[in-house]
Computed example of a mutant assay.
Amino acid sequence: MDPITSLSQKAVFFDVDDTLYDHLIPFREALQRVLGTGEDFPYAPAYHRMRYYSDKLSAEAGGTPTHGSELSEMRTRRFSLSLAEFGILLTGSQAEEVQSEYLNRQFDITLFDGARPLMDDLIGRGIIVGLITNGPPEHQMKKIRALGLSELIPPERIFISGAVGITKPDRKLFDHVTDALNLTSAACYYVGDSWRNDVVGALEADWNVLWFNHRGAEPESSHSPHFKVDSYADIAQILLDAAGQAQK
């Protein structure tokens, strides 16, 4: 698949969790606080499995639950299932405590180095910048506010699955974005870390995709993202080069 080389008057959208900030940090801190795991625990592989089960359980539920017992059960089960693979068998109360600690720590977060300058630069060049993320609306908005992005990105360019009623990787969410902002799929770039939700979802909608694979994950299907990147320096070079070509 050949990448589109010009942004012209186009748009760049970012995923939130583990794309704009390090999602592993609250995960590691929650396990250390509640379970007493040490520095030698394989946090990154365990986090990857937690994200896998989160996506799997969400898909089985027909999309990320946004409230009530279904959401609570999904959140605790992902910890029980993932940590069992690493020899930690959680009781129900332990799973709830880990989830609660993990949830509370998700709002003490900062953007990855280079993310904010890139957004500022794109906006300064007249490029539309927005967010597309799965999850309950208020929960995700608290993260967005904690990252200082609610002042930069107007609400009409923030798309949260729980508010829209469509969950990634369903291409209808990406189609909803293009329809809402009067864009074409060829005009849109998407930056995300999740193969299933971000790469597959955006490619199915014919968007231009940058797979932010900063954790060294393996592809999970035959889909082919336009760009594979592992740093914001790489992301910036691709997007700003394209923006510069569009302005010539």
Rank of each mutant, 00 (worst) to 15 (best):
E96L: 06
E97S: 13
V98F: 00
S100H: 14
S100A: 15
S100G: 06
E101L: 01
Y102V: 01
L103Q: 13
L103I: 08
N104A: 12
R105F: 01
R105D: 02
Q106C: 13
Q106N: 13
Q106L: 07
D108I: 01
I109Y: 00
I109S: 02
I109R: 00
T110A: 13
L111K: 13
D113S: 13
D113F: 02
D113H: 10
A115L: 08
A115W: 07
A115T: 10
R116F: 13
R116I: 08
R116H: 13
P117A: 07
D120I: 05
D121I: 02
L122Q: 12
L122F: 09
I123L: 11
I123Y: 05
G126E: 07
G126S: 10
G126P: 11
I127S: 11
I128R: 10
I128N: 03
V129L: 10
G130P: 02
L131C: 09
I132V: 15
I132E: 07
I132L: 11
N134K: 01
G135F: 08
G135Q: 09
G135C: 04
G135E: 09
P136R: 12
P137Q: 07
E138R: 09
E138N: 12
H139K: 10
Q140W: 08
M141T: 07
M141Q: 15
K142T: 00
K143W: 03
I144D: 05
A146V: 10
A146G: 14
L149A: 01
S150F: 03
E151I: 01
E151C: 00
E151P: 00
L152P: 12
L152W: 05
I153D: 08
I153L: 11
E156D: 15
E156W: 04
E156I: 00
R157I: 10
R157P: 09
I158V: 15
I158R: 02
F159K: 12
I160L: 07
S161Y: 05
S161H: 07
S161A: 08
S161K: 06
G162A: 08
G162I: 07
A163D: 05
A163V: 01
A163Q: 11
V164P: 12
V164W: 10
G165E: 07
G165N: 09
I166Y: 09
I166G: 08
T167V: 12
K168P: 08
R171V: 05
L173F: 06
F174L: 08
D175N: 13
D175V: 08
H176R: 10
H176T: 14
V177W: 01
V177I: 03
T178D: 06
D179C: 02
L181H: 10
L181F: 06
N182F: 04
N182D: 15
N182T: 05
N182R: 04
N182Y: 03
T184Y: 05
S185P: 15
S185W: 06
A187F: 00
A187V: 04
A187I: 01
C188H: 07
C188Q: 11
C188A: 14
Y189P: 02
V191F: 10
G192Y: 00
